[in-house]
Write a protein that binds this DNA or RNA. Sequence first.
RNA 1: CGGGGUGUAGCUUAGCCUGGUAGAGCGCUACGUUCGGGACGUAGAGGUCGUCAGUUCGAAUCUGACCACCCCGACCA
Length: 590
Amino acid sequence: MKLWSQYFIPTLKESPADAEIVSHKLLLRAGLVRKLSGGLYTYLPLGLRSLQKITQLCREEMDAAGAIELWMPHLHPAEFWQAGPRWAAAREIMYRADNAGDGRRAPREPEFVLGPTHEEIITPLVKTEITSYRDLPKNFYQIGTKFRNEIRPRYGLMRAREFVMKDAYSFDVDDEAAIRSYLAMKAAYARFFARCGLKTISVEADTGVMGGSFSHEFMVPAEVGDDVVVYCEESGYAANREKASSGLVPADLVDAAPAGALEEFPTPGVVTIAALAAPPFGVAAGLQFKTLLYMGDGKLFAVIVRGGDELEEAKLGALGFTLWRPATPEEIEPVMGAKPGSLGAVRGTIRNPDALAGVFADNAVRLIGNGVTGANRDGFHLRNVNVARDLAITRFGDFRRVREGEQCPKSGHPLKIRRAIEVGHVFKLGTKYSEKFGAVYTDAQKQSRLMIMGCYGIGISRSLQAVIEQCHDADGVVWPWNVAPFQVLIVLLDPQMPEAAELGRKLAAAAEAAGADVLVDDRAERPGVKFKDADLIGLPLRITIGGRGLKEGVIEMKWRTEKDVAKVPLAEAEERVRSAVAAARQAANV
RNA sequence: CGGGGUGUAGCUUAGCCUGGUAGAGCGCUACGUUCGGGACGUAGAGGUCGUCAGUUCGAAUCUGACCACCCCGACCA
């Protein structure tokens, strides 16, 4: 039991100007966190308590799923990362922590980095410690601080430079076992988020820099989310937009027959899809080929999508490049023979085709018959372009961004789109890391085999904010029972009355005995201030003890989620508090 | 990193255009009156006006550079 007057809950009437979204404002107003600097936050006592509750729930679910907790350093010698498979891609998000305290200038290459995640640390450990199939499977996890040089920290804890994350790493003897580990984690995640009071959906996701064969993300639907989820209510299909596909292109599509010969025509100054769609040309965007040039690991390549479609850059990961970015006009022109706006991939028009690492086309491009594309000559386009006859395509694939309303790939119903916050991510990694670090074991046939890995993250601090984003009203936070910093708030309207203070102690003891954490507001404040603060910090159960009620022989009980106040006779008070706490605990952990 | 914006008391901000002793509300301190949904009065404390340089008799105000923060885009738990 804590007394408010002796605790530290600095609530604010107004929110600081740099808080944009409601959960960020409430984090500050309810006295949960304070900003040190961009993306760096101090957890005040109340915020820390919630964070610890979430941490504990996570630990319980991980342990129940058979994962084993350990603790790894957060300062990593850079050589571990240099030896890993993603040094080039990961170093730009890593903070350097160089040993420059001797007054020398920092070396060009980092000596130490602050860990953004721990595959490069756990895999060498497992390599040396686990050598037999008898010791597998294993799943190690830790809950600790991660450091990422976020390009743009924002929204409070939502995207921070330093944040709390649970990361787990599984090691299995074969694919089948690895999938079992993966599914066990996925199920544990669902239980964890449910116990946090978070409504999440799990979606198919892109594996990104992490690499690996497949993955799911746990998403909290929210208008302020950085991610976009594509889903179908009919079939249950749900995917991150980076990964989502639609049933737009039929599997049995037959390419249209060419209707005429290729023909070049002048299009002075026309460098956009829209300009070519407008008079006098009037070429529908859907009949244009949009040819985009990218630089992948130092090599130029082309991607073609329909004029009206958008390239989904994340899908370029399927091409096998480690890093890629849009090419610059200076890189494009010598190879293609024209500037962006007049590019195309028709055979024979590319100035230096050998300099291209490939021409990749989105499947939907095949829907175009007799289309228009750039002639690789500034100010000219080609018409009557047909995919099979005229374009030199290295490979077709799914590269376009899905749009709302397109058919679900499973059910054919219209797809819906909404924004969401990613709070958890499970990856089946495969052998990307075990291969690089030589994490092998000896099987029953005395054969040396690579371990199959998975990795599993939960944004603990982000989840904290996601709870607030999902659970609040106009007056403040509405904490779910399990993650509330305290579950019961006893408001003493007249703290100087000895009988009120005594009753408060009794009820606090009763609530604690039933398994709740109790905060007692004993401040010498006016009732209005106390009620406003009570709503703002949002503890689930409020018990009000006031002189007026004591004269009537009652106290009041009110749930933060409800409007009604229940008057409870003093004689029943302890028992009612006990049963309310017991009921709430049970409801929160089904 | 690109584009836009903002820096004045712990918080929210006015003043800046048109240079001349830095203002308010909240919060804080003291006293009094209040006391069931952010009370009222009186008296106070609290400011390198982001930093540095320049223009000027004089700069919060004009100019330049830098820094920090916020918003929009690419990254991610």
